[in-house]
Nucleic acid binder design. Structure first.
Lengths: 149, 149
DNA sequence: GATAAATACTTGCATTTTACAACCAAAAAG
DNA sequence: CTTTTTGGTTGTAAAATGCAAGTATTTATC
């Protein structure tokens, strides 16, 4: 309880490593940011560029180029929105879906491994705590959002 | 409990934003990685380059250059280890200490703000949960460590 | 005690990532 | 119909990254 920040720092660093490990694991070999982009595209429902970039807190110009790479790698598809021809809707190609799915399974496997060191009650408490934390961070508009806006 | 990964993803992303915000806040204007380096140097007791690079999971060559920048900015000092003249021990300059301290206070302020949305019991539970999580991740040697080794 | 091997770190180089500024095109506002 | 706003793309330049190769010191090994 003394060094609160340290706790967070260690936890997020470890989770970052986990994420990174899952990118370079057999088969798919993509960067960490690309992994996050794929994840968000799969999670959101045909999002626009802006939406995903905003979620990840990356500059739209950087994001634009990242998407270009992912399209070149045949993992992502960009379709113009018929409602508003300025926006491009993002979706995963079958290959992109496969890669994303593979990473996700790997992540889940690792997370289960981590939680295997706890009993059911502890696991439940930890999960509930993270939920609570997320809610609190959401409430606190001042911090924990992208620096841009 | 359904989407465990999502919970982690959101939490770490938010904490990452928080970290990023604290770098660019008035006075100090350093990159996120530099902030992490400063933090680790202040936390560890006169660490060597390898130690900090290892902790952060960054390549030693990249790290070497980062340190060069921080030295040029007069935030970090490198002193040869008398025991082993190959190693360089890292420490903060007074300026570096000030910057690091400022960031730390900002972080703590933000974290307190986040926890202000909880009651004492919830806060205690959340902190204990993160501790537990860190322990579990440490136990699980397979994941959650640097991909390099 | 000389030689080989390992370790700690730096530099060369090439690639990737990043972001500000300036831009284009479509939509909304006036 | 003109102006402004919005979604997205390039130009360019800086920073970050990491492999390969190098230097210097220390630790085996014979």
């Amino acid at each position: 309880m003394d060094d609160l920040r340290q706790l967070f720092q260690v936890m997020t660093r470890r989770f970052g490593f986990l994420n990174k490990n899952c990118c370079t694991a057999g088969g798919c070999d993509i960067s960490l940011v690309q992994s996050h982009i794929l994840y968000e595209i799969s999670r959101q429902r045909r999002p626009s560029m802006q939406q995903v970039a905003e979620t990840l807190g990356t500059d739209i110009t950087t994001f634009s180029r990242q998407i270009q790479s992912l399209i070149k790698m045949n993992l992502v598809k960009k379709t113009p929105d018929p409602e508003d021809r300025r926006v491009s809707l993002l979706s995963l190609t079958p290959e992109g879906n496969y890669v994303t799915e593979t990473i996700d399974q790997q992540m889940k496997l690792y997370l289960e491994e981590v939680f295997s060191h706890m009993n059911a009650f502890e696991k439940e408490t930890v999960i509930r705590s993270i939920q609570l934390l997320n809610e609190s961070m959401a409430k606190s508009g001042k911090c924990c959002t992208t620096p841009l806006g």
